[in-house]
Computed example of a mutant assay.
Amino acid sequence: MSLADELQAHEVKGEWSIGPHGGEFSKIVMDAPVRGMDDILVKIGVDPEQFEVVGDTFRANAWQQSKRTADGDRDVVTLHSYKGEFRKRRDKIDLPLLMSRDIFRSYATSRATHDFTAVVAPSDEQAGKTDHRGGTPELIERVKSAQAAWDEYLKAKRPQRAIIALGGDGIEGFESSGGSGGPKAYWSNDLSLTQQLDLYASMVFDWIAVTARHDLLHPIIVLAVPSNHGQWRVNGQAIGKPSDDLGLHSVRNAVQRAKDLAIPVELITPATDYDLAVGVTVHGVKIALAHGEECKPGHEAQWMAMQAKDLRSPFRDAAVRLTGHYHHATLQQDGQAPTADGRVIPAWHIRLPTLDGGSSWFKNKSAGVDADPGVVAFAVDARGLRMQDFTIFS
């Protein structure tokens, strides 16, 4: 007799909800003890080969109850009650250290002919998160699609230089503030913390590898910043310095991997262990990047102006200002900025879209709307942001 057949021999009562990435059960009452957590999943119609009970959510109780027998006498029976949560099995996710081991053979090269810099800015991947757009398999699909679009962009534009501006929140984490961080993340995430770090490192490496396939005249520049989901936290509280960031750890590993393969690449992170922003100047035009959790929507200009009071701030005199965190893409002109040779050009703020599986928590709590995923790409030359080359890979 199969497990399912055996379980059907016992009546089950209770409440349960089932979704594509997991669910929960409670008040499951049976007149015989289960032999394992998989028994309960089968009984409520969930495939234990695809899902697993989250161990620290599982609770079991037993009690005795009097029951009348067929001959009119009374007997004592033992009843068993169970509750808990279940999720997609983590061991069912195919997670090689590098997402695309054949990536150097899968993209066509192009010759650099134009004197401008192409920039791609992936942000808020939140690897390990599950939401209405799915989990890790769907995230990998979105990232690969964006990387293929970036390859075509480089092939068509043929820039002499390229920048990969990483907007932060590359991992979901388990102690992050807000969102699905905290206790709920222990069952809603479909990757462990180490798997999240490996996956994010793989995605960053692939961005570098795709870019390296093109005949650039300068080393690839990677900009990376700390962010709230990568922050080192214990019981939800931040500890350590901003530079003690798990996402930055993955980025450093990816860049080192690229250097080991003789890819010309330069990593730029904030100037000190306590700074949150990073900047670079190309063609005399300054580009600044911060994750932006402190840069509240509607108050971006004020926040950037306050940052610019610091003579060392990357946002001081920046003509292109990039922030992530809020998932909704915007492009807004914000005054003017000087170039290195004393000219004045338009200054732009670009809020980066997300690559994550959905922002239901943000929508339900405050915004009322979710945002479609995407990746911003644009070009910069001596005149600043080239509007004709601004696009969002979606």
Results as ranks from 00 to 15, higher is better:
Ser313Met: 13
Ser313Ala: 13
Ser313Leu: 11
Pro314Ala: 15
Pro314Glu: 10
Phe315Thr: 00
Phe315Ser: 02
Phe315Ala: 03
Arg316Lys: 15
Asp317Pro: 02
Asp317Ser: 12
Asp317Cys: 04
Asp317Glu: 14
Asp317Leu: 05
Asp317Val: 06
Asp317Gly: 01
Ala318His: 00
Ala318Lys: 00
Ala318Arg: 01
Ala318Pro: 01
Ala319Trp: 03
Ala319Tyr: 06
Ala319Leu: 08
Ala319Met: 09
Ala319Val: 06
Val320Leu: 14
Val320Asp: 02
Val320Ser: 00
Val320Cys: 07
Arg321Leu: 02
Arg321Thr: 00
Leu322Gln: 08
Leu322Gly: 01
Leu322Met: 07
Leu322Arg: 07
Leu322Asn: 07
Leu322Ile: 12
Leu322Trp: 07
Leu322His: 05
Leu322Glu: 02
Leu322Ser: 04
Thr323Lys: 10
Thr323Trp: 05
Thr323Ser: 13
Thr323Asp: 05
Thr323Tyr: 05
Gly324Val: 07
Gly324Asp: 07
His325Lys: 10
His325Glu: 09
His325Leu: 07
His325Asp: 12
Tyr326His: 15
Tyr326Phe: 15
Tyr326Ile: 11
His327Pro: 03
His327Thr: 10
His327Ile: 09
His327Ser: 04
His327Trp: 04
His327Tyr: 11
His328Arg: 15
His328Gln: 09
His328Asp: 06
Ala329Cys: 05
Ala329Met: 11
Ala329Arg: 15
Ala329Glu: 09
Ala329Ser: 08
Ala329Gln: 13
Thr330Val: 11
Thr330Met: 13
Leu331Ser: 06
Leu331Pro: 02
Leu331Phe: 14
Leu331Gln: 07
Gln332Arg: 15
Gln332Val: 14
Gln332Gly: 05
Gln332Leu: 10
Gln332Tyr: 02
Gln333Phe: 03
Gln333Asp: 02
Gln333Cys: 05
Gln333Ile: 13
Gln333Val: 09
Gln333Tyr: 08
Gln333Gly: 03
Asp334Cys: 09
Asp334Pro: 03
Asp334Ile: 15
Gly335Tyr: 06
Gly335Asn: 13
Gly335Arg: 12
Gly335Cys: 13
Gln336Leu: 07
Gln336Ser: 11
Gln336His: 08
Gln336Lys: 14
Gln336Asn: 10
Gln336Cys: 04
Ala337Leu: 03
Ala337Ser: 13
Pro338Met: 09
Pro338Val: 12
Pro338Phe: 01
Pro338Ile: 04
Pro338His: 11
Thr339Leu: 06
Thr339Asn: 10
Thr339Glu: 08
Thr339Cys: 06
Thr339Gly: 06
Thr339Arg: 13
Thr339Met: 05
Thr339Lys: 14
Ala340Asn: 11
Ala340Leu: 14
Asp341Ile: 14
Asp341Val: 13
Asp341Gly: 09
Asp341Glu: 12
Asp341Met: 09
Asp341Tyr: 05
Gly342Leu: 12
Gly342Asp: 03
Arg343Val: 06
Arg343Lys: 15
Arg343His: 08
Arg343Met: 05
Arg343Leu: 06
Val344Asn: 07
Val344Arg: 14
Val344Ile: 15
Val344Gly: 03
Val344Tyr: 00
Ile345Glu: 00
Ile345Met: 04
Ile345Asp: 01
Ile345Cys: 02
Pro346Ala: 04
Pro346Tyr: 05
Pro346Glu: 09
Pro346Ile: 09
Pro346His: 08
Pro346Thr: 15
Ala347Asn: 04
Ala347Glu: 00
Ala347Arg: 00
Ala347Trp: 02
Ala347Ile: 01
Ala347Leu: 04
